[in-house]
């Protein structure tokens, strides 16, 4: 409760500060006030534009992210355990991970057109390599004693992989998935802002239109929504895992 109060006071003061700056500068184009932005958000929610755009963006993100994880997890396990795959696929992943995935946008547009496919491709490219490298790293850093202990207890093959190797590398896997999420989210936003996708307008497009119309309250409103989704994703997707790890591994600081 105390923490909640602290956060509330902090953010309320930010809004007040924002309002004060608006009064001093008084330029609705350069910096619209909090009330104007709130009114835009209210209207956009009521007429459905925000809901539709959020849904389109979230769908691209979740599907692309899901595909990236589903491919990246097993590939990471494989590159860590096979020298051949580590020297080939592992190296490829390391190289591609350094490439900001927004760089894939031009190619994706050529290959898939201005469509969902292009967006998904960019999101997958953002997710896949981070997840793969994190899992690979986690498995390589595994204390060998865990697998030996598991073997003496009758565990082998897929059982060891799923019940020992994967949970043991959980701290690495989760941080890799978090990084993959951040890459995917950023590159999707960049792509949506700079490219018109004919199959649906996401949050990035909404922001872009705001800019074209000089409607800065729309730009700022959408920015808030984007921040909100980021926070929500963190709380829903990653917090439970991090909480679990802090409790089990004892890494929480009280």
């Amino acid at each position: 409760m105390k923490r909640f109060r602290h956060a509330l006071i902090f953010f309320a003061s930010l809004v007040v500060l924002w309002q004060i700056i608006c009064w001093v500068r008084n330029s609705p184009v350069l910096l619209p006030g909090p009330l104007v932005v709130a009114r835009y958000l209210g209207e956009a929610i009521m007429d459905g534009t925000l809901g539709v755009a959020t849904w389109i963006t979230a769908k691209r993100l979740l599907i692309g992210y899901g595909i990236g994880c589903v491919i990246g997890l097993p590939l990471g396990l494989m590159t860590a355990r096979s020298k051949f795959l580590g020297d080939t696929v592992g190296l490829l992943a390391l190289g591609l991970q350094t490439l900001p995935s927004v760089c894939w946008v031009p190619l994706a547009l050529l290959w898939f057109g201005q469509s969902e496919g292009a967006m998904l491709f960019v999101v997958v490219m953002g997710t896949l390599w981070s997840v793969l490298i994190a899992v690979d790293n986690g498995v390589r850093n595994l204390p060998p004693i865990y697998v030996r202990a598991a073997h003496t207890m009758g565990s082998s093959g897929a059982h060891t992989l799923l019940k020992v190797v994967l949970p043991a590398s959980l701290p690495f896997v989760v941080s890799g998935m978090k990084q993959g999420w951040a890459f995917a989210w950023r590159s999707l936003m960049a792509a949506e802002i700079y490219v018109t996708i004919l199959t649906g307008y996401g949050l990035g497009h909404l922001l872009h239109f705001g800019r074209e119309l000089n409607a800065m309250e729309q730009v700022i409103g959408v920015m808030f929504v984007i921040i909100g989704i980021g926070l929500l994703a963190d709380k829903i997707l990653f917090s439970p895992w991090e909480h679990f790890m802090h409790r089990r591994w004892g890494t929480a600081r009280e």
Binding site: I145, R148, M153, V164, P167, A168, L170, R248, W249, G250
Partner: peptide, 26 residues
């Protein structure tokens, strides 16, 4: 390796992702 011959190591080698009873039940 086989369950008829169990090993205790110098490091406890307990699995941190399981609780105590989960480790014993593994």
């Amino acid at each position: 390796p086989g369950r008829d011959r169990m090993v205790m190591f110098q490091e406890h080698a307990l699995f941190p992702w399981l609780d105590v009873v989960g480790n014993v039940m593994f």
